[in-house]
Amino acid sequence: MTWADMDPATHPFDPGQALAVVREVVSSSDPAAGGPRGLVSSHSVASGLAERYGSWAFGWYGNVDQNPDSGALVRKPLGGTAGDLDAQARRYTAVLLEWRSWLEELAALFAESAPDGDADAGEEERRRSRERGH
């Protein structure tokens, strides 16, 4: 994915509606089984959220781990009990909200380190901008 896929400025999101959306994704039918899901896989939730919100909402998948030495960006447990769809929805919502918060912090850092808007910025200004992390 590129930053354009992840940039919060171009992907509206209402955190107040997140739990309802995640509940819908978690409780939706599994087409392969023809019935409600029992223990929902992280991949299927990430895919469902990406369908709803855009590819940024898939980005947390692979970036979640409780282990502090894992290097993951989101430190939340995802394990659950089959049949407890509401508890699973709350856990996935917490992960989605933390991921979105991280993206918004990253966007703020990019904005803070961006050049001053001078369209005629020379190579030296572009180099300094890259060094600042833009």
Rank of each mutant, 00 (worst) to 15 (best):
T2W: 03
T2F: 05
W3M: 08
W3S: 13
A4I: 03
D5E: 14
M6V: 08
M6I: 03
D7H: 15
D7W: 11
P8D: 11
P8V: 08
A9W: 00
H11G: 02
P12H: 03
P15W: 05
G16Q: 10
A18Y: 00
A20Q: 12
V22K: 02
V22G: 04
E24P: 00
E24M: 08
V26S: 02
S28T: 04
S28R: 14
S28F: 03
S29A: 11
D30S: 11
P31D: 02
A32P: 01
G34T: 10
G34M: 04
G38D: 14
G38C: 03
L39V: 04
S41E: 12
S42L: 03
H43R: 15
S44G: 03
S44Q: 09
A46H: 04
G48L: 06
L49W: 01
A50V: 12
R52V: 12
R52F: 10
R52D: 02
S55Y: 02
S55P: 01
S55K: 05
A57I: 12
A57W: 03
G59C: 08
G62Q: 14
V64D: 02
V64P: 00
D65R: 09
Q66F: 00
Q66N: 09
P68K: 12
P68W: 02
D69E: 11
G71N: 06
A72H: 05
R75P: 00
R75S: 13
K76D: 04
P77S: 11
T81Q: 12
A82M: 00
G83P: 07
G83K: 03
D84V: 00
D84S: 06
D84F: 00
D84M: 01
L85W: 09
L85D: 13
D86H: 01
D86T: 10
D86A: 07
A89H: 10
R90D: 14
R90T: 12
R90G: 00
R91V: 10
T93F: 05
T93A: 06
V95D: 09
V95S: 02
L97I: 01
W99A: 14
W102A: 14
W102L: 15
W102T: 14
L103S: 07
L103R: 08
E104K: 05
E105S: 15
E105I: 12
A107F: 05
A108T: 14
A108Y: 08
A108C: 03
L109S: 10
L109F: 04
L109T: 11
F110G: 02
E112S: 13
E112W: 05
S113Y: 06
A114L: 03
P115S: 13
P115L: 15
G117Q: 11
D118T: 02
A119Y: 05
A121H: 02
A121C: 02
E125W: 01
R126Q: 09
R127K: 09
R127M: 11
S129L: 05
R130A: 15
H134W: 15
